[in-house]
Write a protein that binds this DNA or RNA. Structure first.
Lengths: 336, 336
DNA sequence: AAGGGTTACTACAACGTTTTCGTAGAAAAA
DNA sequence: TTTTTCTACGAAAACGTTGTAGTAACCCTT
């Protein structure tokens, strides 16, 4: 373990511990020559202040938590990168917690974070989260919370999100204009507000273009991957097969491709496909996938920036402030 | 901030702080009824012990660091997932640091970790890392280090890796058997031992099958994405165009696809492609990409398991122990 | 020369745990 | 009965840092 501490430096320099501490923090109370002596010895002995002692004393850990459903996913991976970039700039450390889309894991993480381990939390809800008491409790402990993407409407906290409703609308509109008459919507957990918004965009899109809404064109993919795949395949194999599919998340779009392959359906001839996705390989798929791409990296940066503004009490924005970063429609051959 | 502490519990219960502390840790020195009283009140008041006080006192933080070049990449994302899974089981917290393939960022991260902030480190080298003094210093501070994938041969530490040499050989062999006569190898930073091993596999593969080795078939993609892309395109546009390409990392394989598209080359007719990759969409690309897939998730789990064994002093394995998890060749149409 | 102000430091308490050492009282052994 | 051994708890000292409250020594006033 690290063993060189203030006391040792102080003894070596014939100074008091407090003087050394202040010298290292470049306090004006310490004379320049003394500071220099302290700096030099600290460097020579490779002194690293004990962060835990400091955190204990100052009630600040310079650490934040990022709580997300999964990481093996371009969206969340890029968001993490954005968050880490800003955190690094600010001298903060980033703890990562994966909930695996499991509400109870999210709760236990949140409970754990009440210990004061972190100064703030950036979170994207798990698909299973039903109530948000565990997050309210975090707020009650004065631990600032910032949501991104999968936000929680019932909690007052800054939120970084995309224009989900508009994107859902645009995706649907795009399919309709491409000639689709029966458009299916694959959605994940309906307890998430992004799901509602994307779905509302979908239904309003149908309405706007006088397309019928059919209940069986909504496929709720809330289970595990195999179950979801089965549902999708069943949809595509039914005699009520849709001629357009709007997947609300990346992995569902990928499963549509697999199902079409298995069933011998040709995209876009038999069925056109559009999906929310940050796949770097979208343009290389066969056929290239039309996507609604979210600015994941920027969303991460923005969420982190907002959190640090709160932590540094720079300016307190309204607690329910939301930042909307628009997603981009990228038309490719899967909807031609 | 968190405000309920041992002292308050103690006062409320008419016990001493030490008794409460011990009761919560279920010490045999405390009577069952007393323990029960303590447990009940702790639960009622939602007591969470201050982790920093605890870490300071115990010289253990129950926190590890994961230092990787990037996260927006299926391999590293899956590895993180594996690490986080094991860490969660063991009650550890995971700090994440991205070096962005930058050697100096890796150094500054390592320097920072000398503070004793973490009990151990899991690291995959940045492509730019030239010397490893910063890592040696970590070890000297008694902070256990475990490498995965991009290991550092010159440091004695457990290493979790794939069979890079064999995989390089197999990839080359596969291309040769598919009828390639001029095989290019796209490699990343040659300061990484995995690059050497994969390359050695490549050259030995050529040798074994009496294929000529041509220096200009080695493309070192050590710069930024645009430069790398240019090199790849130049290679494919040259009159010495290869008929097979072995990409040592995922992103280079993707760039080959883009370059082929730009140049109007058809895979696999004009050029066959194989690449190290964990792309979930490999089979959906046009054409489907033949890959060498590393068991990223398991590598992460294994690295974490080894680290925790060291931390818990379960059994000290030889310091230079290596675990080799074999990669899998998945033949798809890009090499047919 | 006495008072006031500044400069450059030091002593000490505090942060919330854990741990070492100690001990009152009860039970067991003599 | 006295002595020893348990049982169940408490007091206090760490861990390494930071903040508060001091204070010698010096310079500047008047």
């Amino acid at each position: 373990m690290n063993t060189v501490n203030l006391k040792q430096l102080a003894k070596e320099l014939n100074l008091s511990v407090s003087t050394v501490s202040r010298a290292l923090r470049d306090s004006w109370e310490i004379s320049t020559p003394t500071k220099q002596r302290v700096f030099d010895l600290a460097k020579k002995m490779n002194f690293q202040p004990n962060p835990y002692a400091s955190s204990l004393r100052k009630h600040r850990s310079r650490t934040i938590a990022v709580v997300i459903p999964e990481v093996a996913n371009n969206f969340f991976a890029l968001a993490i990168k954005g968050i880490e970039t800003i955190a690094r700039e600010k001298g903060y450390h980033v703890l990562i917690y994966l909930t695996n889309e499991d509400g109870s894991e999210e709760m236990s993480v949140a409970a754990n974070l009440q210990s004061g381990r972190v100064d703030g939390v950036i979170l994207s809800l798990s698909g299973e989260t039903k109530d948000a008491r565990h997050l309210v409790e975090l707020q009650q402990r004065n631990i600032p919370l910032v949501f991104f993407d999968r936000v929680c409407d019932s909690i007052e906290a800054p939120k970084v999100m995309t224009n989900d409703y508009e994107s859902g609308f645009v995706a649907t509109e795009h399919l309709i204009k491409a000639g689709c008459h029966r458009i299916a919507h694959l959605t994940i957990s309906m307890s998430l507000s992004i799901s509602h918004k994307r779905m509302k965009g979908y239904t309003d899109g149908l309405l706007r273009y006088d397309q019928p809404f059919e209940e069986n064109m909504i496929v709720r993919c809330e289970g595990n991957d195999e179950e979801n795949y089965k549902k999708i395949r069943d949809l595509l194999a039914s005699d009520q097969r849709p001629d357009g599919i709007f997947a609300s998340v990346e992995k569902l779009a990928v499963q549509v491709y697999h199902a079409c392959r298995e069933l011998g359906l040709e995209i876009p001839r038999d069925v056109k496909v559009i999906g929310f996705s940050n796949l770097v390989t979208a343009s290389l798929l066969s056929p290239a996938l039309t996507t609604i791409a979210q600015p994941a990296y920027d969303m991460g940066k923005e969420a982190a920036t907002i959190l640090f503004r709160r932590l540094e009490k720079k300016y307190i924005l309204k607690p329910d402030d939301r930042v909307i970063l628009p997603a981009r429609l990228e038309v490719r051959s899967s909807t031609l």
